Simulated assay, not measured.
Amino acid sequence: MGTDTPESIDAAALAFCATIAPGMPEYVDVVPGEGAQIAYCFSNAAEAVRRHGGSVAYGWIIWRWPGRYFEAEHHAVCRRSDGTLHDVTPMLYGQTRILFLSDPGAVFDPTRFRPNRLMAEAGNPVAAEYVALSIERADILNAYGEPGVDHTITPQDQARLDAINPRWMALYRELERG
C-alpha cells in the first residue's frame, strides 16, 4: 500500500503539520494541466500561472501510511484569483486530490533542495525505527544531490549505507505486513 493522501485531517495529521509549518492543511483537487509532467510541480505550476493567471502557492504535500508514518514533500500548486487552490501536477499513482500545507517560506529555489520530512505515528516502534533510518539514509544521499557537489558516493558513505540498508528494507517489509 504505502503512503497516500490522508483520508481525514485528524489530530495526528495536524500534529505532524505543526512540525512543518504554521497553518491548516487543506484538500486540493488535482486536475493535471496541459503538458504537465509527474514530479515537475514547480515548473507545472509556474506554466499554469503564466497561461491562466493567479499565483504559485508553495508548501508541502502531506502523505500518510495509516498507522505507520507521515511524510511531507515540498510542492507547488496554483492559487486562483479567488484564493482557491488547485494542483496541475499529475500524481504518480493517479490521486485526484492531495492534502496541501501552505508554507510561504518554502519558495522553490533550484539551488536549495528541501528534503522530505517524516514522522512515525505514535505507538509504532517499527515505524519509528524505519523513519529514523530513512532520515539517516536521506541525510547521506541528499548530500550528493546538492548543486556543485561531486555526486560520487565516498567509500565511507557507501559503507554507512550498506550498514543501514538491510535493516531499513527489513523494516519496510515488516510495515507492509502490518
Rank of each mutant, 00 (worst) to 15 (best):
F70N: 00
V30W: 12
A106S: 12
A39T: 01
A36M: 00
H74C: 07
A132V: 05
R114M: 13
R112E: 12
V131R: 03
V31L: 07
M1E: 01
M24S: 09
D29E: 11
R173P: 01
G105T: 14
M91T: 04
Y144S: 01
I61H: 12
G67T: 14
P147F: 09
E7Q: 12
T111Y: 15
A159G: 11
Q37F: 11
P155V: 04
C41G: 12
A39R: 11
R80Q: 06
R112Y: 06
P66V: 02
H86T: 13
N124K: 05
I135M: 14
D82H: 01
R80I: 02
A170V: 04
Q95Y: 14
D150S: 10
Y172G: 10
I20P: 10
L175Q: 11
E26Y: 00
T19P: 02
T152L: 08
I98Q: 07
L171N: 10
P6T: 15
A120W: 14
F16V: 08
R160E: 09
A39Y: 06
P147G: 03
D157L: 05
I9G: 06
V56E: 05
L141N: 12
L175N: 11
P104M: 04
Y58D: 04
D150Q: 02
R137K: 14
T152A: 13
W168S: 02
A57S: 14
Q158V: 00
D82P: 00
W65M: 08
T5E: 13
G33I: 13
P32E: 05
E47Q: 06
A106Q: 08
A76L: 08
A106R: 13
W63G: 08
T152W: 12
A122H: 07
A106I: 04
G145S: 13
P147Q: 12
C78R: 15
W65N: 09
Y58C: 03
D4Y: 04
I62K: 00
A170Q: 14
Y144P: 02
G33W: 04
R80D: 12
T84K: 14
L92M: 15
V88D: 02
L175P: 09
A170R: 11
M169E: 15
P25D: 15
G67S: 05
R114S: 11
V30Q: 06
T96M: 02
V131G: 09
I153G: 00
R68I: 01
G54A: 06
Q37R: 01
F42M: 15
G54H: 00
R50D: 06
M119N: 13
R173Q: 15
G23T: 09
M119P: 04
Q37K: 13
